[in-house]
Measured scan of single mutants.
Amino acid sequence: KELVLALYDYQEKSPREVTMKKGDILTLLNSTNKDWWKVEVNGRQGAVPAAYVKKL
């Protein structure tokens, strides 16, 4: 499985998103959308802005 690093804090704004903190390591589930990537963090799945994460 592919991992990404959170470059910034992000507070979810809808139920389809997830909150992450700078430095979090997230499991990347889907990166086909260039703006929003689906990730899993702390057992929750949701979208985060692609510009806020970097593939490891």
Rank of each mutant, 00 (worst) to 15 (best):
K1I: 13
K1L: 14
K1R: 14
E2Y: 12
E2L: 12
E2P: 11
E2F: 12
L3I: 09
V4P: 00
V4R: 00
L5R: 09
L5S: 05
L5K: 07
L5I: 15
L5W: 07
L5H: 04
A6Q: 00
A6I: 03
A6T: 03
L7S: 02
Y8S: 09
Y8R: 14
Y8Q: 13
D9E: 06
D9V: 03
D9T: 05
Y10N: 01
Y10K: 00
Y10F: 08
Q11N: 13
Q11R: 11
Q11D: 13
E12W: 06
K13R: 14
S14R: 07
P15M: 10
P15F: 10
P15I: 11
R16K: 13
R16D: 14
R16L: 15
E17V: 05
E17K: 04
V18R: 00
V18G: 02
V18Q: 03
T19F: 06
T19G: 09
T19D: 03
T19I: 03
M20A: 02
M20W: 02
M20Y: 02
M20S: 00
K21C: 11
K21V: 10
K21Q: 10
K21F: 11
K22V: 08
K22L: 06
K22M: 08
G23V: 00
D24W: 11
D24K: 02
T27V: 15
T27S: 08
L28W: 01
L29F: 05
L29Q: 04
N30F: 07
N30L: 08
N30A: 10
S31D: 15
S31C: 13
S31Y: 09
S31E: 15
S31R: 10
T32W: 09
T32R: 09
N33T: 07
N33G: 12
D35Q: 11
W36T: 03
W37Q: 02
W37R: 01
E40Y: 07
V41P: 00
V41W: 09
N42H: 09
G43F: 05
R44L: 07
Q45H: 10
Q45R: 12
G46F: 13
G46L: 10
A47K: 13
A47P: 03
V48T: 02
V48F: 01
P49F: 05
P49E: 03
P49G: 02
A50R: 09
A50T: 07
A51W: 10
A51T: 12
A51F: 09
A51N: 12
Y52C: 14
K54D: 08
K54L: 13
K54G: 09
K55D: 05
K55F: 11
K55V: 13
K55W: 08
L56P: 03
